[in-house]
Design a protein around this nucleic acid. Structure first.
Length: 572
RNA sequence: CGGGGCGUAGCGCAGCCUGGUAGCGCAUCUGGUUUGGGACCAGAGGGUCGGGUGUUCGAAUCACCCCGCCCCGACCA
């Protein structure tokens, strides 16, 4: 491709509203443009990269035995009513009606559609197992789209769905997909980590997320420094030694105006870990829908909301208002578990805790000497606290560290969460009707492009790995003499003949402009033909970001071929 | 949804406080000089100043409403 024919609108200045590096560089290097909030144009360079990511995913999915299909973006809302997920998915599901007043929605994921398909077509156990996948645009009306391609509303996703006659088969495919994902992210050249994950709004039993490690990541993952244990903090469990305390009688402690953990701990002269922090929430969804509940963790712990939502089997929780706190007998700032008229959940780490300081549910008053076992009744003991760096590993006792990650893939063993309501049934070997069991496996394709840029860039711009670069080689003609253009044109043809997708910068631009653009858009290999070297019969050859060396022009094509050997396997 | 900020040429910004001809840099176009790391000279084009209403002789500037975008929060009482 000749550069002068390429639509690559590069920018010198950083657009003011781009915050993370991938967003800035993809805009500056002419890969993407924003259309509306969370929705982007993928310009030709970006599409080339997307296609390469997709090609690797397709290769590995096919190798793993999955088959590609394509489902619609528009889905009838009835399917979501049938699966029982309409309310749960909430406003993230973009709904609309057509001219016949038929209720429709834009697909944020496709469990319903594929189950609908399978419910019509699946008859016999002999058709199982089956793994079907697609690469397709999704739409989720995100509460806050941000960071360019990292959290868009419309995005490209690979989603796969497997169906099985029994859970053993499901778990075998789950492991197969886990391994497949590992291969895919390895081939993409990413530093990543699979972690145990919460199943979120998708549901199901087992789940792992694949995270690309990057400081700009929106997720926090906890991982052991000694063993393989790693989990999203939404789910991670950990060990921590409780403070030593002796049993004491309950007593009142006047705490005028002291409402924060820090203030009360300092005033009472105890460590924050001796405090019992009581949070009050309003619940939506599930059996407690609309109710106000209280949850307790140690004063120095954070409550992990996702864990509480699970304990309640709810869709969401929100901090209660002052009025709601009063409605259960609490006083904002002085809430405690004793005497509260609400369902009570206590972090299991507090089960045997003694001599705690807790709110007294009266203004300017706390209680001391609280024993969880002795003084608090009717509470549910569940894991609620968020894992912290430095905690003990639940597997090996090693030390837990926290890292930030970009979630680029997730695998779920769903079981019969969808197949049951959607009536995906088959006849088993005994001739009996049975509900199929199911797994689903997603990869954020467009997000991956941003994640790669987060990991692969420098001051000059994007540094694509060979396998993903929109062009593996840029041929730069330096100077505009006929001799240089002729010699470059010859090399250009030879590279193409050798099967190398080369970008030929034959523009009448100054050298600085050409080199800056080449680095910005991230082409891995540079070949420079200039007046100077041409006289000696040499070209310059080198990798982006390191020095070029002079080589005989006659050898350039062969050298490029050798250098790009690892890209061949990813040919489109 | 709550809080904060911003909206002026393709991109980055000034002008607004204190109302009076809409500006600067980059980019673009023309001509010329240049050509090994984002050139220089001369000229040119490009704006409903986010939208509306109001105040005023006069509004980018003041007031009100709306829209859009960005950031923070929506979990620690």
């Amino acid at each position: 491709m000749r550069y002068s024919n390429c639509f690559v609108p590069t920018l010198r200045d950083v657009p003011a509203d781009a915050e993370v590096i991938s967003h800035q560089l993809l805009l500056r290097a002419g890969y993407i443009r924003r259309v509306t909030s969370g929705v982007y144009d993928y310009l030709p360079l970006a599409l080339r990269v997307l296609r390469r990511i997709e090609a690797i995913i397709r290769e590995e999915m096919e190798r793993a035995g999955a088959q590609e299909l394509l489902m619609p973006m528009v889905q009838p809302t009835e399917l979501w009513e049938k699966s029982g997920r309409l309310a749960k998915y909430g406003p993230e599901l973009l709904r609309f009606e057509d001219r016949h007043a038929h209720q429709s929605c834009l697909g944020p994921t496709h469990e319903e559609v594929i189950c609908d398909l399978m419910s019509r077509e699946l008859r016999s156990y002999k058709q199982l197992p089956l793994n079907l996948y697609q690469i397709q645009n999704k739409f989720r009306d995100e509460i806050r789209p941000r960071f360019g391609l990292m959290r868009g509303r419309e995005f490209v996703m690979k989603d796969a769905y497997s169906f099985h006659a029994d859970d053993e088969s499901l778990m075998a495919e789950y492991r197969n997909m886990f391994d497949t994902y590992t291969r895919i992210f390895d081939r993409l050249g990413l530093r990543f980590r699979p972690v145990e994950a919460d199943t979120g709004s998708i549901g199901g039993s087992d789940s792992h997320e694949f995270h690309v490690l990057a400081d700009s990541g929106e997720d926090v993952i906890a991982h052991c420094e000694s063993c393989e244990y790693a989990a999203n903090v939404e789910k991670a469990i950990s060990l921590r030694s409780a403070p030593v305390a002796a049993s004491a009688a309950v007593a009142e402690l006047e705490t005028p105006g002291l409402t924060s953990v820090e203030e009360v701990a300092e005033f009472a002269g105890v460590d924050a870990a001796q405090l019992l922090k009581t949070l009050v929430y309003r619940v939506s969804g599930g059996a407690f829908d609309g109710a106000v509940v209280a949850a307790c963790v140690r004063g120095d712990d954070q409550l992990q909301t996702v864990k509480l939502i699970h304990a309640l089997d709810a869709d969401a929780v929100e901090m209660a208002s002052d009025a709601e706190i009063e409605s259960i007998g609490g006083v904002t700032g002085f809430v405690g578990p004793i005497g509260l008229n609400a369902p009570l959940y206590i972090d299991s780490g507090l089960e045997h805790a003694l001599d705690l300081v807790a709110g007294a549910n009266r203004r300017d008053l706390h209680l001391t000497g609280v024993d969880v076992g002795r003084d608090i009744s009717g509470a549910q003991l569940v894991d609620l606290r968020e894992t912290r760096a430095g905690d003990g590993c639940p597997r090996c006792g090693g030390t837990i560290a926290l890292s930030r990650g970009i979630e680029v893939g997730q695998v779920f063993a769903l079981g019969r969460r969808y197949t049951e309501p959607m009536e995906v049934v088959f006849q088993n070997q005994q001739g009996k009707r049975e509900v199929a069991t199911m797994g689903c496996y997603g990869i954020g394709v467009s997000r991956l492009m941003a994640a790669v840029v987060e990991q692969c860039h420098d001051d000059g711009g994007i540094a694509w790995p060979d396998v993903l670069a929109p062009f593996p080689v840029i041929l730069v003609s330096m100077g505009k003499s006929d001799a240089v253009l002729e010699a470059s044109g010859e090399i250009y043809k030879q590279l193409q003949t050798a099967g190398i997708d080369v970008l030929w910068d034959e523009r009448n631009e100054r050298p600085g402009v050409k080199f800056k653009d080449a680095e910005l858009i991230g082409i891995p290999l540079q070949i420079v033909i200039g007046d100077r070297g041409l006289k000696e019969g040499v070209a310059e050859f080198g990798r982006r970001g390191s020095d070029r060396r002079e080589v005989a022009i006659a050898d350039v094509v062969a050298m490029a071929t050798t250098e790009l050997a690892n890209r061949a396997g990813a040919a489109i």
